[in-house]
Amino acid sequence: MDAAAETGGAVARWDSDPVLTVEHLTMRFGGLTAVGDLSFNVGRGDITALIGPNGAGKTTVFNCVTGFYKPTEGRIAMRHGPGRQQAALDALTNSGARWRRSAEGAVFLLERMPDHEIAHRAKVARTFQNIRLFGGMTVLENLLIAQHNPLMVASGFTVGGIIGLPSYRKAEAEAIDRAAYWLEQVRLTERADDPAADLPYGAQRRLEIARAMCTGPRLLCLDEPAAGLNPRESAELNALLKYIRDEHDTSVLLIEHDMGVVMEISDHVVVLDYGVKISDGDAAFVRSDPRVIAAYLGVEDEEEIDVAEIKQDVDQVARRTPRSDAAGDGR
């Protein structure tokens, strides 16, 4: 599946200026191939959605990108700075190093880096499908822990902090300001001094996003951020994600089951089924792709589908008025 071909010849934006490139990613657990030879790009400044039925391997892709799993095969390249930086990337791949600076910025090979370095150096932040907050610590403390690395430097790796250097106090005040800013964005200022475990579910989801943003990421990976949210919260989430994309120079990669969210906010959608990519394009394209429809409705043989009728069903699932905006009728 070549995305370029799908968008009518012109190279898609996410292919010409990708922040993240996943190439031939394979992840096996014993005999089970959770992800098989997966390649896709995440465009800089895009909201990219990774969708697929349950067990398709979406979370596994996240875990490979963020270093929690070591991929069996494949290359995962993260870029700071514009363009594909192909020369720097090739040099890096051959050098055996984990990352290198380039004229435009820097390139990172995530499959070579340990998880904390991916968050710290490559600036990829993530949230978890089952929320992982520091429940016994306050909301504010959660956001300060996210700024651990800069604060650690400011505290002179603890030595300066113990003797109470004024520069550390200043850095901490700045970190609190930044935390307060994100609390404002996710409407949690009032709860700043409450333990995170006391927050209601939706607020915990928002806090997890705020915490990830406090690391100052270039790429934010969200694993089902809208799961369990009511429609109002879901709409708020959409607004927040667009705000993050537009105002913070952060690209977003999200896994989502809620088609309403996916169709409304994503610039680019990648569809997985059984660990294999079955579609890749913008929202309208993916929505009308018969293979996607087949995967979602569990039909084995594509030939048998009456496309128009089924598409209507899918559109209903997608909470969208059908027809009008569906570009090209299948392929």
């Binding site: 929690f68 904390h116 968050a119 992982r132 996210a146």
Partner: peptide, 8 residues
């Protein structure tokens, strides 16, 4: 795990 995802 959350710690590692935050770069610690």
């Amino acid at each position: 795990i959350a710690c590692r995802s935050l770069g610690i």
